[in-house]
């Protein structure tokens, strides 16, 4: 019995130590990337390549996700609102939900899945094939060369993707609301402009920017921490997606609590 308890305590101790080590490593990585962001040389070409990959190349999937989200959301709200004869409020309800929550969070989840995974896989495979060592031997800081453009690329691209999500999502709800559910077009748009405020859009944009930064830092951190061979790369990629998505959802809660106070 005593041995069993000792073993449990020991494994708990190892778990806590590993967790604290991981947190320390992550904090260290975060500070290093911040430091190297402001150090020359500034590699604009790499940054634009990342904005193209994270931003432009995500537009199609954002288009699909947002148009159907807007359309489905309009349908669901219509069912509830019809009961209390308030179906003309579909427009503002969908748009406010999109601006404040759905656009930044769903864009975040899409980017975490698509780009967070790609970042971890690219950097991870470079690590296991000594390409990162090759950079370091040449005197190039691998954090500055590999992590900084990806983190900045995600931070810059995410608010733009979120804005596109909002516009297309609104389009989807407008289409369903006015053409299928037969709500008057003028009523739909005027109610939206009555209830929407700039602060709501700002809230979504701030959230998307924070999510972009977090997805970038988690994806690159997981890549740099890959060990072993192909299996390690797979594990790192998986961790980047899982932690990226969890972080988006958890941080969204705290950001909402904070931003609704100040905006």
């Amino acid at each position: 019995m005593k041995v069993m308890v000792e073993k449990k305590i020991e494994s708990l101790g190892i778990y806590v130590t590993d967790l604290l080590n991981g947190l320390g490593d992550f904090t260290n990585f975060t500070f290093k990337t911040i430091y190297w962001t402001f150090k020359p040389p500034y590699r604009w070409k790499l940054l634009f390549e990342q904005i193209y990959f994270i931003g432009n190349k995500s537009v199609f999937i954002i288009f699909l996700t947002s148009s159907f989200t807007g359309a489905v959301f309009a349908y669901q709200i219509y069912v509830g609102m019809k009961v209390i004869n308030a179906d003309s409020f579909i427009g503002p309800l969908v748009t406010i939900a999109l601006a404040k929550e759905l656009a930044p969070v769903l864009s975040g989840l899409v980017v975490a899945g698509r780009c967070g995974a790609a970042m971890a896989a690219q950097i991870g495979s470079m690590k296991v094939t000594e390409q990162i060592d090759a950079l370091e031997v040449m005197g190039i800081n691998s954090y500055q060369y590999l992590a900084v453009p990806r983190i900045l690329g995600a931070t810059i691209s995410m608010p733009m993707l979120s804005a596109i999500f909002l516009l297309i999502g609104y389009g989807g709800s407008w289409l369903i609301g006015t053409k299928v559910l037969m709500i008057d077009e003028v009523t739909f748009t005027s109610k939206v402009s009555d209830f929407m405020e700039l602060g709501m859009v700002t809230e979504g944009i701030i959230k998307a920017t924070v999510f972009g930064y977090l997805i970038g830092i988690i994806g690159t951190y997981q890549g740099f921490n890959v060990t072993g061979g192909a299996e390690g790369v797979g594990k790192g990629t998986n961790m980047a997606v899982v932690w990226g998505m969890i972080t988006v959802l958890v941080v969204d809660f705290f950001l909402t609590s904070f931003l609704t106070q100040i905006l």
């Binding site: 495979s125 470079m126 094939t129 000594e130 390409q131 060592d133 090759a134």
Partner: peptide, 8 residues
């Protein structure tokens, strides 16, 4: 490097 480590 052992396996050349060329940038792929």
């Amino acid at each position: 490097f052992q396996y050349a480590a060329l940038f792929d």
